[in-house]
Nucleic acid binder design. Sequence first.
DNA 1: ATAGGGTTAG
Length: 673
Amino acid sequence: MSTSTTTTTNLPHHIKPKEVSAESTASTSKLSQKTILHILNTKCTTSLQHLKQAHGVALRSGHFQDHYVAGAIVKCYASQHFSNFGFALKVFDSVWRPNVFVWNIVIKGCLENNEALSCISYYCKMVAMNARPNKFTYSILFKACTLVQAVEEALQIHAHVVKNQFGEDGHIRSAGIQMYASFGLVEEARRMLDEAAESNDVICLNAMIDGYMKCGDVEAAKELFEKHMPSKNVGSWNAMVSGLARCGMLKEARELFDGMSEKDEISWSAMVDGYIKGGCHKEALEIFNEMQKENLLCPGKFILSSVLAACANVGAVDQGKWVHAYIKRNTIQLDAVLGTALLDMYAKCGRLDMAWEVFENIKQKEISTWNAMIGGLAMHGRADDAIELFSKMQRSKLEPNGVTFLNVLNACAHSGFVDKGLNFFSSMKKFYGIEPEVEHYGCMVDMFGRAGQLEEAEQLINSMPIKPNAAVWGALLGACRIHGNVEMGERVGRILLELEPQNSGRYALLSNIYAKAGRWDDVEKVRMLMKERGVKTSPGISMVDIGGMVHEFKVGEGSHPQMKEVYLMLETIIEKLQMEGYSPNSSQVLFDIAEEEKETALQYHSEKLAIAFGVLNTKPGTTIRVTKNLRTCEDCHSAIKIFSKVYERDIIVRDRMRYHHFRNGRCSCKDFW
DNA sequence: ATAGGGTTAG
């Protein structure tokens, strides 16, 4: 029986191995098994054409029956490079009585192609066919169980490991420790580690440190690290540093980090990520700069994408650009993760043009890539473009997810597209089976609210199937402020102060509503309540990126070396603006919208300071980009509008909510913020 | 003759 013919008949027509021409058959069919293997391992890992050809040759020559050859072929097809794992499985099905090696290749293939559940089913088939699993099989399976959180299966598989006497294998053990820790079963993980107490395997110990950290048991991790690890390696320190940092213990993480005699890229990366997770973006950039100074390591894509996230957050567009240039210079592949981080950085730093260019250059776009671009457009008030890009994404047959809809709805909300928004909202469930989450409802409330349909907004809250959170009520309160609805504002404000008694922003918003209506007694009451409850306020901070350095400004703080000049400049500016019709809005000033920054004759909001600094340090006509941690207030907003006209400069302010492009006396948000 | 372990991600 010729097995090669039976094999090909199962294959769908369009993916059959390429027919080999008569002429070449004569020579290629004589290829030895060794040569075929060599071709498979060299040419066929990246070229589908070569692979199909080699596959054909193997089938014709009978070498496909050799497990070395069959295994190599399956492995090549399973490579993510071709993203056609289904075909690899078909080829595997045509292997006659696969041995362990071939089974392991297919099980590993499942893992690498995000089908971890199939790992388990192939393992079952393997056992059913009486093929004996080996130690390689089990470490793959433990990883698969980790990925899909298959606890029951894991326990059974673990029993098989013990029964087959692989319990002593270090690889299996470290995978097992990670697995149990990921299930939250720390004791189980610890038991695995202790079973091999005498082996003192550093990697298993490191995995245990990480496991403790992931389960939040910092003390246990520390004890293991300090008392029971006579020989540590970089990985041990890295596990500690990244664990501490992830648990928010940044100071301790930093101390340990500073004490490391040898740091690798992961050490730096862990520290950068820790700072970012803790909201310390400036520190993240500083530590990256330190890494550059040491000049020993070339930053790779992991740390670069973290750094880009930090740049995005503080608006450090110059440093972001530097990273971009670095990527180009070193021909680092712009994969979906790195590319999306870069795109996001440009969008958040107000450079939509660059964001778009990057977007188009990302070859393997993932859903998050599209989401970032759609979100970027939405943030800048380009609702039509955002919606258009959304349709384009659908045409490219990518399925939107919850985040996609969040961004699209956000775009609608900020441009007053109520009808369109409603359509999207209902289609997400109807056509895509995506259940709206509380954020989506928040967006809808915001949309109705901005458009002045306050009753509809309140109705939606009352009818939503999930419990509204503070953000949802906050959106409504914000709308009450825009439209000056004191009655509803009071009601909603009361709910919010109950729900989040420590959130200063809520008090500020309510007090603003009262101030706008001239109800000064109530303004005072809110202020007293805040004092009584000891609500901590967060200071407004504005950052401006000039010449690759991020400068920070806080209200009433004189730490910046140029502070004197900045205040002088600001006074000149204000005088000039007043001549052009600006009057400082003292009705709003007890708190500004963004809370808590008291305005007195000598205290200016941080964005004004940042702009004055920008004027001092850039040439006339240069665009000034400011990033603020809170929302910008009405007074600053109108001051900046006039400024943009008087000084003939574009100002781009990114506040907590969105972007404001000021030009020639107007703002892109159309005062709709 | 055929293969693996820990620390990083939008």
